[in-house]
Amino acid sequence: MSIDQRLTELGITLPQPAAPVAAYVPAVEIGGLLHVSGQISFAEDGSLITGRLGEDVDLEGGIAAARRCGVMLLAQIKAALGSLDRVERIVKLGVFVNSTPAFTGQPKVANGASELMQQVFGEAGRHARSAVGVAVLPLGVAVEVDAIVAIKA
């Protein structure tokens, strides 16, 4: 089964890849790896998912925001590679969670993106990961996720 078929099976429609908001490119392919710039949390309707975990966003909202970051990562990967079938493995995700000092559920929030990669790519979607709480993210979003992806030649 192709990855596009798998996405259909999961009910996932990829959005248009988000354009960079500053002086960088969405992805760089080098040495068999695709480095994907951080993708911020966009809702399905294209609006930003903003706020801080532990303040005005609850855990479930954070998990959903991380999943939406993962969907945008998939869109960027597909745009860069032409096909998600070129993904050999998701190597690492870096997850940044806009959170209060008292909020310590960053790993649970990050699971929103991690579990998506495993649903889409199976064993090849299992990856190393960082989940970090930060004081603020671009445009006030709740979550940002970047990725390193091994690609098939």
Results as ranks from 00 to 15, higher is better:
Ile3Ala: 11
Gln5Asn: 02
Leu7Cys: 07
Glu9Lys: 06
Leu10Glu: 06
Gly11Glu: 13
Gly11Val: 12
Leu14Trp: 08
Gln16Glu: 15
Gln16Leu: 10
Gln16Lys: 14
Gln16Cys: 06
Ala19Pro: 11
Ala19Asp: 14
Val21Lys: 10
Val21Asp: 14
Ala22Cys: 04
Ala23Ile: 06
Tyr24Val: 08
Tyr24Cys: 09
Ala27Gly: 06
Val28Phe: 03
Val28Trp: 03
Glu29His: 06
Ile30Cys: 08
Gly32Pro: 03
Leu33Gln: 15
Leu33Arg: 15
Leu34Arg: 13
Val36Leu: 08
Val36Asn: 04
Val36Phe: 01
Val36His: 02
Ser37Gly: 08
Ser37Cys: 06
Gly38Thr: 13
Gln39Pro: 09
Ile40Asp: 15
Ile40Asn: 14
Ala43Ile: 05
Ala43Lys: 06
Glu44Phe: 05
Asp45Ala: 10
Gly46His: 00
Gly46Leu: 03
Ser47Val: 04
Leu48Tyr: 09
Leu48Asp: 13
Ile49Lys: 13
Arg52Val: 03
Glu55Phe: 09
Val57Trp: 00
Asp58Cys: 06
Asp58Ala: 06
Leu59Thr: 09
Ile63Gly: 03
Ala64Arg: 07
Ala65Asp: 07
Ala66Pro: 04
Gly70Asp: 14
Met72Gly: 14
Met72Cys: 11
Leu73His: 03
Leu73Arg: 02
Gln76Glu: 12
Ile77Pro: 01
Lys78Ser: 12
Ala79Asp: 15
Ala79Asn: 13
Leu81Gly: 13
Gly82Ser: 01
Ser83Gly: 09
Leu84Ala: 08
Leu84Gly: 11
Leu84Gln: 12
Leu84Tyr: 09
Asp85Met: 01
Asp85His: 01
Arg86Trp: 08
Val87Tyr: 01
Arg89Lys: 13
Ile90Asn: 01
Ile90Lys: 01
Val91Leu: 09
Val91Thr: 13
Lys92Gln: 13
Leu93Asp: 10
Leu93Arg: 11
Val95Ala: 03
Phe96Ser: 13
Val97Trp: 00
Ser99Lys: 12
Ser99Pro: 09
Thr100Lys: 10
Thr100Met: 09
Thr100Leu: 10
Ala102Gln: 14
Phe103Met: 09
Phe103Ala: 10
Thr104Ala: 08
Thr104Ser: 10
Gly105Asp: 14
Lys108Ser: 15
Lys108Pro: 09
Gly112Glu: 04
Ala113Met: 04
Glu115Gly: 02
Glu115Leu: 08
Leu116Thr: 07
Met117Lys: 02
Met117Gly: 05
Gln119His: 03
Gln119Leu: 07
Val120Asp: 06
Phe121Lys: 00
Gly122Val: 02
Arg126Phe: 08
His127Tyr: 05
His127Gly: 01
Ala128Tyr: 07
Ser130Trp: 11
Ala131Thr: 01
Val134Pro: 14
Val134Cys: 10
Ala135Met: 11
Ala135Ser: 14
Ala135Pro: 08
Val136Arg: 06
Gly140Lys: 02
Val143His: 12
Val143Glu: 13
Asp146Met: 05
Ile148Leu: 04
Ala150His: 00
Ala153Glu: 10
Ala153Arg: 02
